[in-house]
Simulated scan of single mutants.
Amino acid sequence: MDKRVLLLGDNNSFMVGAIEKELVNAHFNVVRAETSHESIEQIRELPELFIMFLEREYDKDDENDETNLRFLNSLIKDDMNRLLYLIGNSKEVESLKFAINEDNISGVFKRPINIKNLTIVLEEVMDKRNKLEEKKRILVCDDDGTMLRTMKGWLEEKYQVFMVNSGMNAITFLATNKVDLILLDYEMPVISGAKVYEMIKSEKDTANIPVMFLTSKSDKESVMEVLSLKPKPEAYLLKSQSKETVIENIDKFFAKHDKEIADKINKAL
Rank of each mutant, 00 (worst) to 15 (best):
86 L>P: 05
87 I>H: 05
87 I>Y: 05
88 G>D: 03
88 G>C: 01
89 N>F: 03
89 N>G: 05
91 K>W: 11
92 E>A: 04
92 E>D: 05
92 E>N: 03
93 V>C: 07
93 V>A: 03
94 E>V: 05
94 E>N: 06
94 E>G: 04
94 E>K: 10
95 S>I: 12
95 S>C: 12
95 S>R: 11
97 K>L: 01
97 K>E: 01
97 K>N: 00
98 F>I: 03
99 A>R: 05
99 A>Y: 05
100 I>V: 12
100 I>H: 03
101 N>W: 05
102 E>K: 13
103 D>E: 02
103 D>G: 00
103 D>Q: 01
103 D>M: 01
106 S>K: 11
106 S>F: 10
107 G>I: 02
107 G>P: 03
107 G>M: 02
108 V>Q: 03
109 F>D: 03
109 F>A: 02
111 R>M: 03
111 R>K: 10
111 R>H: 03
112 P>Y: 14
112 P>I: 13
113 I>L: 15
113 I>A: 13
114 N>F: 02
117 N>D: 15
118 L>Y: 08
118 L>S: 07
118 L>C: 07
120 I>L: 08
120 I>T: 11
121 V>Q: 12
122 L>P: 04
122 L>N: 08
122 L>I: 12
123 E>F: 05
125 V>E: 08
126 M>Y: 15
127 D>P: 07
128 K>F: 00
128 K>N: 00
128 K>Y: 00
131 K>Y: 09
132 L>W: 08
132 L>E: 14
132 L>R: 14
133 E>G: 06
133 E>L: 11
134 E>F: 01
134 E>R: 02
135 K>E: 02
136 K>W: 04
136 K>F: 04
136 K>L: 05
138 I>C: 10
139 L>Q: 11
139 L>T: 09
140 V>A: 11
141 C>L: 11
141 C>K: 07
142 D>C: 09
143 D>Y: 09
143 D>W: 10
144 D>A: 14
144 D>H: 12
144 D>V: 10
147 M>H: 08
149 R>L: 04
149 R>M: 04
151 M>T: 00
152 K>S: 10
152 K>E: 11
152 K>G: 04
152 K>L: 07
153 G>S: 06
155 L>T: 01
155 L>W: 01
156 E>M: 08
157 E>K: 14
158 K>C: 06
159 Y>G: 09
160 Q>N: 14
160 Q>A: 12
161 V>K: 12
161 V>Q: 12
161 V>W: 12
163 M>R: 10
163 M>E: 09
164 V>Y: 09
165 N>G: 07
165 N>R: 07
166 S>N: 07
166 S>L: 05
167 G>Q: 02
167 G>N: 02
168 M>E: 13
168 M>L: 10
169 N>R: 09
171 I>G: 13
173 F>G: 10
173 F>W: 13
174 L>G: 14
175 A>Y: 09
175 A>K: 13
176 T>N: 15
176 T>P: 15
177 N>E: 12
178 K>N: 15
178 K>P: 14
179 V>T: 08
179 V>I: 09
180 D>K: 14
181 L>V: 07
181 L>Y: 06
181 L>C: 07
181 L>S: 07
182 I>W: 06
183 L>Y: 08
184 L>Q: 04
185 D>F: 00
185 D>G: 00
186 Y>L: 15
186 Y>V: 14
187 E>N: 14
188 M>P: 01
189 P>G: 08
189 P>R: 07
190 V>A: 00
191 I>S: 00
192 S>N: 12
192 S>K: 13
192 S>A: 10
